[in-house]
Write a protein that binds this DNA or RNA. Structure first.
Length: 493
RNA sequence: UAGGAUGUGGUGUAAUGGUAACAUAUCCGCCUUGGGAGCGGGUGCUGUGGGUUCAACUCCCGCCAUCCAGACCA
């Protein structure tokens, strides 16, 4: 492992890649566009997944699992949906290989061609709604609140670890309701679950909003999203929740008999977050020393590095900190005593910083004699010597402080990089400025043409129309046509 | 995509027709442990197929792959 990572200000993309690789999160695999998530990166995902799963269950959802392969015909039943995904689908055409008659290796057996091709799911609406048809007959079967943890595949042209890979892990919730109001409520409820998760656990401030029609999910009537700002001022969509109306119910003929005896199509939602959240976490909080992980999601909270002259010293220090580790465990705080004597302390310090462990304790014989211990916090990269007495309470409080501090830093950063802009010149200037680029609140005339034109001219898109937007008379930033509210523009990942 | 560039140890680079070099990682040994130590030794490489040549990492052609630009996206 090389010793330095590229500086954040010098080359943001390279900085990001360095952290992913050097913090041991993931790497590119032999398969085009697919990544290998390494144990440390996967532990991070597991923590996110477990917390989200709890939140889904608290809101009445249950988990189920649907097939990886989707018959091609299913995908073509919803017109917008197929148009949105057709260009990036991997297709299974054969079911058998055979030895190559002309030499070594195997070839696809031409006799084993499938009558109907199977699509590797890019998302599961179609197969799930095909299944729901048999599950939903009456108002008594509603609402149907199901979530699936799965992998999906989208044949992306250009990939980037965690942010965009051909295969990724995610969860997708698919619900069915008796009324449009209920479905909209569900869509908004799940958006709020995502926003709460991002803010409380990932320490990532997000804007809750709706997508413009241009940016809507293929097949949705309304797409809600949470948008986060990365440290280069670009936006990252961190989660989406869709109100699908009756589109999929109609496409798959899912009807229910109401209490009043009326037969009607059900109303649907779908919502998802993915391993992209790991990318968001990295780009929002990390620094030139590597990853910074909020305590509430960290695979390891506290690392203890002994500084020693021999095995005797290690044993003494271990005896001293053992009760502390046990007490921390009872508080739900994980700790590790790193007694690997093939690595020197300086190396360990740098390594745990790279991996973003929130708190580091160091104890040498000097501390041992004096009844002190060195406490270093990852978020601020500061350290202090403290009395060993009372260290447990201190760590507990410190972890909470770190969690809050990481959030506050990200929120303050977003604040300084959010602009309210009324002239086109200023709009362009901010988007072109590498050092100050950010979110722009500006008026928009509400047309897709204007949005497209702005994208073409500046690469910026409408990230969302915030849910808490206030009505305000104004003129479109591009056309000067009347507008009644500001929307958020930014360049995005 | 009638686009542009590039393929050398695990990784990052050097060698412009003539013994494939350096850094880092890795392995062994010694020495070390309060911020990524040091010394000695070992392993390991020209994407692929063809052509030109006494001789090809180097020149030519095909293929493959990657990156950049486009299009798309959780």
């Amino acid at each position: 492992m090389s010793k330095e990572i590229t500086s954040r200000s010098e080359n943001y993309s390279q900085w990001y890649q360095d952290i992913v690789k050097k913090a041991d999160l993931a790497e590119n695999s032999a398969v085009r566009g697919c990544m290998v998530i390494k144990p440390y990166g996967y532990a991070l995902w597991e923590n996110m997944r477990d917390q989200l799963d709890r939140m889904f269950k608290e809101t009445g959802h249950v988990n189920a699992y649907f097939p990886l392969l989707i018959p091609k015909s299913f995908l073509s039943k919803e017109a917008d949906h197929v148009e949105g995904f057709a260009k990036e689908c991997a297709v299974v055409t054969h079911y058998r290989l055979k030895n190559d008659p002309n030499g070594s290796g195997v070839i696809v057996d031409p006799d084993a061609k499938l009558e109907e091709e199977l699509i590797i799911r890019p998302t599961s609406e179609t197969i799930i709604w095909h299944t729901y048809k048999d599950w939903i007959k009456s108002y008594r079967d509603l609402p149907l609140l199901i979530n699936q943890w799965a992998n999906v595949m989208r044949w992306e042209m250009r990939t980037r670890l965690f942010l965009r890979t051909a295969e990724f892990l995610w969860q997708e919730g698919h619900t069915a309701h008796a009324t449009a109001e209920e479905a909209v409520e569900e869509t908004e409820r799940m958006l709020e679950v995502y926003a709460t998760f991002a803010e409380e656990f990932l320490a990532l401030p997000v804007i809750r909003g709706k997508k413009s029609p241009n940016e809507r999910f293929a097949g949705a009537l309304d797409t809600y999203c949470i948008e986060a700002m990365m440290q280069d001022g670009q936006a990252l969509q961190a989660g989406t929740s869709h109100f699908l109306g009756q589109n999929f119910a109609k496409a798959f003929d899912v009807k229910f008999l109401s209490k009043e005896g009326v037969n009607d199509y059900v109303w649907a939602t779908s919502w998802g977050v993915s391993t992209r959240l790991i990318g968001a976490l990295i780009m929002a909080h990390s620094d030139d020393s590597g990853l910074v992980i909020p305590p509430k999601i960290a695979p390891l909270h506290v690392v203890i590095v002994p500084i020693h002259k021999g095995q005797d010293d290690i044993d003494k220090i271990y005896e001293k900190v053992k009760p502390v580790m046990a007490a921390l465990k009872k508080l739900g705080i994980s700790s590790k005593f790193d007694d690997d004597d093939t690595k020197r302390p300086g190396f360990k310090f740098a390594d745990y910083e790279m991996r973003g462990v929130p708190v580091r304790l160091a104890m040498g014989m000097r501390d041992y004699e004096n009844g002190t211990i060195e406490v270093a916090r990852r978020d601020e990269k500061t350290k202090e010597s403290r009395p060993f007495e009372g260290i447990i309470e201190h760590i507990q409080a410190l972890l909470e402080e770190i969690q809050a501090n990481i959030y506050n830093k990200a929120a303050a950063f977003r604040e300084t990089r959010t602009y309210s802009v009324d002239t086109w010149d200023e709009f362009v200037k901010i988007l072109d400025d590498d050092q100050n680029r950010g979110f722009i609140k500006a008026h928009w005339d509400g047309t897709a043409e204007t949005e497209d034109k702005i994208k073409e001219l500046t690469k910026a898109t409408i990230r969302c129309i915030p849910l808490d937007v206030v009505a305000e008379e104004g003129k479109c930033i591009l056309t000067g046509n009347p507008s009644d509210k500001r929307v958020i523009f930014a360049r995005a990942y």
